[in-house]
Design a protein around this nucleic acid. Structure first.
Length: 183
DNA sequence: TGCACGATGAAC
DNA sequence: TTCATCGTGCAC
């Protein structure tokens, strides 16, 4: 397993999103190493993408999206769940990939189908917002060998307010994987 | 300083 | 379809 470097994230967001499928999210806390295989993601393309948080400009919450790639953007949603993104492209582009579901691999208890459940099971909360993913305790890694994945493209979830952007096929998941939140 | 509303999940 | 629950963003 090798930690994905910043060059990986500093590319087209939809490409990064697709390539994150099958990679391993690793979070070590209190001596426990939790690992989940990413099976579902969504791409948020920047301020011009009306479904993206960055579409409302640089704010206290979204400033991480406007920062350099390879960092975690973690925010609270509906007062009870966290969602985790990875920042992509170059600083100022304000794009990111939302991690929507992982398949439990190591020390992951509970359900992981959906961005809120994923963060709960992986023990990810606001303390990890803006965390650099080029770190030992929190990163995404690639296996040395990976089989070719069959990838499904669908519209993103919960962004109906975004007009034409809601219909873009920017949600990606591994076909037939039982841990996908909404096949 | 107040308040409407979510990139959700679960129950009904 | 409704609701729990609270930080954020913007109106006033």
């Amino acid at each position: 397993m090798r930690i994905l470097n910043r060059t990986f994230y500093a590319r087209d967001t939809a490409v990064v999103a697709r390539e994150l499928l099958g990679k391993y999210l690793v979070h070590c806390s209190r001596g426990v190493r939790r690992v989940g295989r990413i099976v579902e993601v969504e791409a948020y393309l920047g301020p011009h993408d009306l479904a993206a948080h960055s579409a409302r400009g640089l704010t206290e919450r979204t400033k991480v999206m406007f920062g350099p790639p390879g960092h975690a953007y973690v925010y609270m949603i509906y007062g009870m769940y966290y969602c985790m993104n990875v920042v992509t492209e170059r600083a100022g582009h304000a794009s990111a990939v939302l991690l929507r579901a992982v398949e439990p691999v190591e020390h992951v208890r509970g359900r992981t189908q959906g961005p809120g459940l994923l963060c709960r099971a992986m023990r990810i909360d606001r303390r990890l917002n803006a965390h650099d993913l080029m770190s030992e305790n929190f990163h995404i890694a690639a296996a040395s060998r990976t089989a070719q994945l069959r990838i499904v493209k669908r519209p993103r979830i919960g962004v109906e307010y975004a007009g034409v952007w809601a219909r873009r096929l920017l949600r990606f998941y591994i076909r037939d994987n039982p841990y996908v939140s909404r096949p």
